[in-house]
Design a protein around this nucleic acid. Structure first.
Lengths: 335, 335
DNA sequence: CCTGGTTTCTACAACGTTGTAGGCAACGTT
DNA sequence: AACGTTGCCTACAACGTTGTAGAAACCAGG
């Protein structure tokens, strides 16, 4: 039922290689020969066997994208853009869910040398630079803050500046007791640390001072954690007039907790998030956020990977920054 | 830098095939031979070339999951479960975004025969059964209502019964003017039709009658469409006391529009959705919904596919139903 | 010590593709 | 008329793996 070059060749009365040449668009094939071959291909519904082609060429046309979890909106949106950007270059994307644990991430990073993929775009949470030094040369592009200045190409956004900007936005609205949700002391918390730095430096610039009591940790950044952290803040007696949540799902959870506590957003407490996920455009109230340009991040990552795969694999790792925008909505503005 | 069986064989002083036997766990290998081979494998950091193995075996260990869009929460959550269920059987999942157009879906369905994947789990929106008859035997499992009783295995939930149940829930709360958002007249609207049927039959059972004016179409089921449909309903002068939205993102959009119109949920209008996405647990108010058991759907789909791949490819297509639950929350209950 | 069976290992071919090298016509140039 | 060049095509080998067939070494039972 499934046909090979040989079958097409027999039907068209040419050699196997000529069929291969037609399939690959080789120029020097007589029009009538080409037509005969193409007809045979159509009749037999021939499709190349990619395993064989890959074996011969040493390329698979498949890249992997490894993210912690697919149903975290930020990663789902990112994944969508990566798949699209890769498709533009003729690549297929294989998606790997790491779960975010260091051991699993290490497996992904090293098990990648299966020759099934040409390269890897990796958004690690727990991995350290040390985990990456021993890889045998599969091109890799890292996303996010976790392994900055590591041994691989890297796409980031300026977390410190972005966090400073959104904290300034809250300051500019006259808020004075600005809390933060999402701090982490674990090694996984690289993004958390940078965003905390930005928050802190904005506060100090504004002369507001940094108050530990206003900073709530969140081991994971899901909605439920944001809600719990907000409840803790409220019950601890501190009365913030604004909250900067280190990502949007935390913020959505915080909105929920504020609602349950009978506090109005933004009148009583202004809320800001980070990530620019789609949900934030439709929440009640809509969510002010830092929106990284995910399409750009995806495209840069795919292009960096393409350069590694086709080009010099020993060149110095490059680090590219993607832009972001502050999107101001009801949760800080009112309407 | 990258080693082959041959390199390992030379280092261990055995034949290539013996190394292959060790790698594949063949029983009859002397312990000391095995040890020598394993040591060589470790030293050289040998990894099998999957393209070559696949070529030889005719299997790739990769299955594809095709969904319309990854950043639709329902599909993201589903994808996560499929990836997990597939991993349990030793498979990797390649994710394909179709965009939901018929032409693209057709390409996915037929272009799948690239020998890169062993099978396909497909959640089509626009595809018809006719588009599927000509496939050359790549095992496939369909999800959703689009192509019922088609030529392939199929996992569904009982949409009509679920829609009837949630409509009954609204009726039971004393609501009398129950609107519906999400109807579709296009061929893509298979789910919409079934959910509308359930809605309608519940109303008629309850003696409430079916009123066209209370049914709002939504060409796509995104948040923005739900908000727009809700606004249309309100401005058309009908005053529903409840709305059944055909999925959760529509419902989240509707909540938003009701909020903007100054209507209270659920006091003025009760809102129910469908899909059981995570967002609905944290929206304000939290969302009553029909939650299909996505984990079960994913597992059933993967198992059906496994049976096709390993077993009889000509057996009659099977259709399995997955369970769902009505999850009652604030948007219909109040608190 | 022979016989028949098992264990352990190896050589070879094949999976379907493409790169290389080369052959044969047909062409234009000397 | 002889020459090199170009266009078109083919045969062969190779990518790295595993299935098949079988050789060599070993073992138990007579």
């Amino acid at each position: 039922m499934r046909h090979r070059l040989k079958d097409v060749a027999e039907r068209a009365g040419v050699s196997v290689k000529t069929v291969s040449n037609v399939v690959n668009g080789y120029a020097h094939v007589r029009p009538d020969t080409r037509a005969r071959v193409e007809e045979a291909i159509a009749v037999l519904n021939y499709r190349p066997n990619l395993s064989a082609r890959n074996l011969r060429k040493g390329r698979t046309g498949v890249i992997a994208l490894a993210v912690p979890e697919l149903d975290i909106p930020y990663f789902a949106e990112l994944a969508r853009h990566v798949v699209t950007a890769a498709a533009d270059l003729g690549w297929t994307v294989l998606i790997d869910q790491t779960g975010g644990g260091r051991e699993q991430e290490r497996v992904v990073a090293s098990g990648i040398t299966d020759h099934l993929i040409d390269g890897l775009i990796f958004s690690p949470l727990a991995l350290t630079a040390d985990d990456l030094i021993n890889l045998d040369g599969t091109p890799m592009v890292l996303l996010g803050e976790r392994v900055a200045h590591g041994p691989a190409d890297h796409v980031v956004i300026d977390n410190v500046a972005a966090a400073r900007e959104i904290t300034n936005h809250l300051v500019g609205l006259g808020r004075r007791r600005i809390a933060a949700i999402g701090s982490q002391r674990t090694p996984e918390g690289a993004s958390a640390r940078l965003r905390l730095d930005g928050y802190r430096s904005a506060l100090e610039e504004a002369g507001l001072g940094y108050d530990e009591a206003l900073v709530a940790p969140a081991p994971v950044w899901h909605r439920a954690d944001g809600a719990a952290a907000m409840r803790n803040l409220l019950s601890s007696g501190v009365r913030p007039d604004a909250v900067f949540c280190f990502n949007d799902t935390l913020a959505l959870g915080a909105l929920r907790a504020l609602h349950e506590a009978g506090l109005r957003v933004p009148e009583d407490v202004a809320v800001a998030g980070f990530d620019g996920i789609e949900d934030g455009r439709f929440s009640v109230p809509t969510l002010t956020t830092i929106a990284p340009d995910k399409e750009r991040i995806a495209r840069l990552a795919v292009e960096l990977l393409a350069n590694r795969i086709d080009g010099d694999r020993t060149a110095e790792p490059r680090e590219l920054a993607a832009p972001y925008r502050l999107e101001s909505r009801e949760s800080t503005q009112g309407r």
